[in-house]
Design a protein around this nucleic acid. Structure first.
Length: 198
DNA sequence: CAGTGGATGCTCT
DNA sequence: GAGCATCCACTGT
């Protein structure tokens, strides 16, 4: 069995996604399906963190914590937030400058029972509505820091139809808080906050 | 529904 | 020792 390398496959589609500048990648990532060991759902909320953005972890320069951000695109940058939660980012091109997209919320579609057990909440809208909740539901920890998102245990599958995407300001930051680099699916009940119309 | 504060651990100065 | 790219429980309307 030989693969047809002249035809764009899933790998190159993902590479094209990671090759975008962070704001465009953050918007383009909406609607893709992300899973970890088969558990996850559709990305409905992201935020872009540009290397020249004071709110980005990479802004002060390379440190042991943010080292993965300065590496190849398409990898997971996982950090601990407020001593309690984990948060998951995707590293974007160009390699070396440390751009990233924070994945803030999923619409749960795969492994609902596993997510409910890990989260301990009755309301499915709260399973993955926020970066910390998302990582708890998918069991993402520091062990995943630096792993490629197009290989197990991760899987990233392209969206079928283009969702309606809305841009707003980012959540929970104090620096450069006015930049409209948060993207979400219009009207989704699964985003971390904002209009849920549902 | 809005506002407040505590939990908790790691990173960097 | 300060400051977090958060979440939850609790308060008061």
């Amino acid at each position: 069995m030989s693969a047809d390398i002249s035809r764009p496959g899933p790998e190159s589609r993902q590479a094209a996604l990671f090759a975008l500048p962070p704001a465009e990648a953050a918007r383009a990532l909406i609607g893709w399906t992300l899973t970890v060991d088969g558990v996850g759902g559709v990305v409905v909320e992201t935020e872009a963190y540009h290397h020249e953005d004071p709110a980005s972890h990479s802004f002060p320069g390379p440190t042991p914590r943010n080292a993965v951000m300065f590496g190849p695109p398409g990898r997971a940058y996982v950090y601990r937030s407020y001593g309690i939660h984990w948060c998951l980012n995707v590293v974007c091109e160009p390699e070396g400058v440390a751009n990233a997209v924070l994945i803030r919320a999923l619409e749960p579609t795969h492994g609902l029972e596993a997510m409910r057990a890990r989260r301990g909440v009755a309301d499915d809208r709260l399973l993955c509505a926020g970066p910390g909740r998302l990582c708890q539901a998918l069991a993402v920890t520091r062990d995943h820091d630096g792993l490629p998102l197009d290989a197990p245990p991760f899987a990233l599958v392209e969206r079928g139809e283009e969702p309606e995407v809305v841009a707003t300001t980012r959540i929970g930051i104090t620096k450069a808080a006015d930049r409209p680099w948060r993207y979400l699916v219009a009207g989704s009940p699964y985003v971390s906050r904002g209009p849920r119309r549902g």
